[in-house]
Amino acid sequence: MGVKSIYILNKAGGLIFQRDFGDSLSKLDSNDYLVIAGTLHSVHAITTRISPVAGSSGLTVMETPSFSLHIFQSQTGIKFMILTDRQQYGIDSIASRIHHLYSDYVMKNPFYTLEMPIRCEKFDRYLGAYISTVA
C-alpha cells in the first residue's frame, strides 16, 4: 500500500537518494539503482522528442500491472521519482510534500554539497514519518 519507493536524481541523472518503503518491490543492489536512475533520466529526455505534438514535457507517469511510477522535476532540474500503488491518489501533494522536506532538511543543511548523495539524518527521519502517514 501507499508509496513503495522514492528516488531523487540530480541534474545530471545521478542517483542522490533512494529508499524503499515496504517490500513489495524486488530488492536490487546499489549498482542496479544507479542504472535505473540513469536510464530513466535518458528516457525522460527521449520522450520529449517522440511527441506527436510540439512542446511535450518528459515522461510523467508510467503504469505497470503492479505499480505506477511518477516523475516530478523541480525548477532546478532535480527529479523526484515516486513509485506507488496503482490505487494511490493525490500524488501531486505527496510530491510537493517531499519537495518541501528536501528543501527544508537537505538544501538548508550547511554540510550538504549540491549534486552529491543525500546523507541527512533529519531528512531520512521526517521522510519516513511522512510516508508512513500516507494512506
Binding site: T39, V43, T47, S51, L59, M62, T64, F67
Partner: peptide, 29 residues
C-alpha cells in the same frame, strides 16, 4: 520510440514480477 519502450520494459522487469509496463504518458501524449 523503440529505445524508450525497451528501457522502460527492462526497468519494470527489474523492479517487479510484471512482464512489461502498460502505458506511460507525458503532458502531451
Amino acid at each position: 520510440i523503440y529505445g524508450s519502450v525497451f528501457s522502460l520494459r527492462n526497468i519494470t522487469r527489474k523492479l517487479s514480477d510484471d512482464d512489461a509496463f502498460l502505458s506511460f504518458q507525458t503532458s502531451k501524449y
